[in-house]
Simulated scan of single mutants.
Amino acid sequence: MRLFLMYLKSRLAVILFFLTLLSVLCVVYGLYGLPWGPAFYTCILIACLGVLALSLGFYKFQRKRKGLEFLKKQVPYFEGFPQPGDPVEQAYQDLTKLLQSYANTREGELRERENTALAYYTRWSHQIKTPLAAAQLLLQEESLDREALGRELMKVEQYVEMVLHYQRLEGDGKDLVLREYSLEKIVNQALKKVAPLFIYKRIQLRLGNLKKAVLTDEKWLVFIFEQLLTNAVKYTRQGTVSVYLQEGTECTVVVEDSGIGILAEDLPRVFEWGYTGGNGRLDKRSTGIGLALCRQAANMLGHSIRIESTKGVGTRVYLCLTHEQIEIE
């Protein structure tokens, strides 16, 4: 009964039209003084036709509803909608298909992000064990090597900061504070964090004229420079790491090292998530995440990053700090 009342409600406009038609017919007969017998039979005929039409409509309505209820139970094996009965129903089906396609796309993206995150956290959990184990061994020695312990703790701190930045990038809010900052001060902040690596490996540092104001987010840009400088020192056995502004450009910073370089076949993939390449296979501690985070952060800030390298000669990383388009979500 409730279903029938719902159907009548959906056909209320048609019912009102029939009732109005009957009322007009009665008014016309009354105004012209015509016999009420034919009017009565006409009203009965129209009412019967109306009831028949409503009954057939309700039958189709109930049949279609049962079909939809059956489809609801077959959602995992859903193959398609039934034939639409009118253009409006066709439009609803098209809209539903578009929403389904969008949902499938989003589901695929979320599943991919989840798999990427799981792979990263798994690798990260194994990587952070190395400096922690080294620090534990140092603490067990009779004569504590504070310098060595400091280096291991710095590595732990870098791993923790990396995973925190990864979580911020994956989250909805990027916590950006965009304004003009001194490029020289930002680079110096990053250098202060990685200074123990330079000292330990006795790598020479050369700084060019970095007196430039840049529109960026200080926290994220410091993170990018810290990653680039750490990589430069990590893959430089001896020599120099240089940071300077590229000549002839508005604001492109170059981080150059005289390290082992990158294989030509690895260059197109160095910014991919989890890709370590030939150098990463030599350095078992490489996660293949640092440069990927750098590019993602740079894109978010409206900056761009690229790499040039020659195996056995060195690597140049170009960080363009001019704005193309800031990524906003």
Rank of each mutant, 00 (worst) to 15 (best):
L68R: 10
I186L: 15
L293P: 01
A91Y: 02
L68C: 08
K66Q: 10
G278D: 11
Y244T: 04
E157Q: 09
A213K: 14
F40K: 15
A297L: 11
V28N: 05
Y120H: 03
L229H: 03
F78T: 01
F198R: 14
Q204P: 03
V51M: 11
I289V: 05
K234Q: 15
T310K: 15
L34N: 09
I199Q: 13
P268M: 06
S286I: 02
R316P: 02
A119Y: 04
Y41D: 04
Q246K: 15
Y318N: 02
L169K: 06
I328V: 10
C26G: 05
G150K: 08
V24D: 01
A91W: 01
Q158P: 05
E247R: 13
T252Q: 13
L228T: 08
Y92H: 06
T322S: 15
G239E: 04
V187G: 01
I203S: 02
L56I: 11
Y41N: 10
T315D: 03
E250D: 15
I307M: 09
Q90S: 00
Y200H: 14
R237T: 10
V160K: 10
Q93L: 02
L8S: 00
G314P: 03
G150N: 11
S258E: 13
I199A: 13
L3A: 13
Q189K: 14
I128K: 01
L191T: 12
M162C: 06
W36K: 14
L34Y: 13
N279E: 12
S125D: 02
I46M: 03
C43D: 03
I203F: 00
A119L: 08
L191P: 11
W124K: 02
N209R: 12
K212A: 14
K73G: 12
L245E: 11
H165V: 08
L137P: 02
I260G: 01
V233F: 09
V222N: 09
G274R: 08
Q204I: 02
L49T: 07
K64D: 14
R2C: 00
Y32E: 12
S309F: 06
L210F: 04
A13G: 00
T20K: 00
V254P: 06
Y102G: 00
L263W: 03
P87R: 01
L68P: 02
R151G: 00
T42G: 12
W220L: 12
Q127P: 00
R111N: 09
L3K: 07
P84N: 11
F4M: 05
N299R: 14
E147H: 14
E112M: 09
E112Q: 13
C320V: 05
N231Y: 13
A298W: 05
